[in-house]
Design a protein around this nucleic acid. Structure first.
Lengths: 118, 118
DNA sequence: GACGGACATTGACGCTTGTCAATGTCCCAG
DNA sequence: CTGGGACATTGACAAGCGTCAATGTCCGTC
């Protein structure tokens, strides 16, 4: 019947209380995984990837909200929605300047994502 | 009324037909963005992040499917479901060995994700 | 102060996703 | 070939997500 006749792996189990949202190098407890997943979910969307790329590619390093709707082909409320998600995830920052809102990347937060796949 | 009295950004518009799923460095057309989003969506889940981390942390570089359910605290069908998603995304590979299924990382695919945030 | 323009918020809608119980398939041991 | 164990698949359900039209809020200009 082969009941557990196999060499069992020393599965590192859910590790103890981690400090930082560590990378893939170590096993990950549910809490860390959920935090990391929240961050990645904010990026894992076509429209939001385009938003990030547009900001990154801009000369000034910042882009007015009004300049997003046209290249994305999405309605103004939808763009606003995506910008909010990215902002709340800490990936971009928002600065009100008169009537307009300008958005720029938060490099530290982007690097944090990059560090996961070291 | 300020009709377009602002200096308009030279928004690089949706760039031409790109070849590779490029990083954030350049603007991204919808097609590339959707491909990249699909890949990132496969990773942006707590359970799947834990799966990847467990494989990465294993001594042999591969883990039997039966060793996942316990540390994840999820049912067997659910684990199987997540493993399928990761496999179809090309992030892990599956090898049937007798009754058991062993999974290991696909480093090239992981690196592909890392390259996005260069 | 009144108008208009730039964004945000709300509400509603369909679609996708994560989960599990139940069932199916395949492989090995007897 | 029969029984049981390892995984996969199916079906169902609640929750979350992406989108837009309609509306709200705030700011600058006349």
């Amino acid at each position: 019947m082969a009941t557990k006749a196999r060499r069992r792996q020393t599965l590192p189990l859910v590790s103890g209380p981690e400090c930082c949202p560590s990378g893939l190098s170590e096993p990950m407890n549910r809490e860390s995984a959920e935090g990391l997943a929240r961050l990645l979910k904010a990026i894992a969307d076509p429209a939001r990837l385009q938003l990030l790329a547009l900001i990154r590619a801009s000369d000034a390093g910042e882009v007015c909200a009004c300049d997003f709707t046209e290249p994305l082909g999405l309605s103004q409320p939808t763009v606003s929605h995506h910008l909010k998600i990215l902002t709340e995830a800490g990936l971009i920052s928002r600065e009100q300047r008169g009537t307009w809102a300008w958005f720029s990347l938060v490099p530290e937060r982007i690097a944090e994502v990059a560090a996961v796949f070291g």
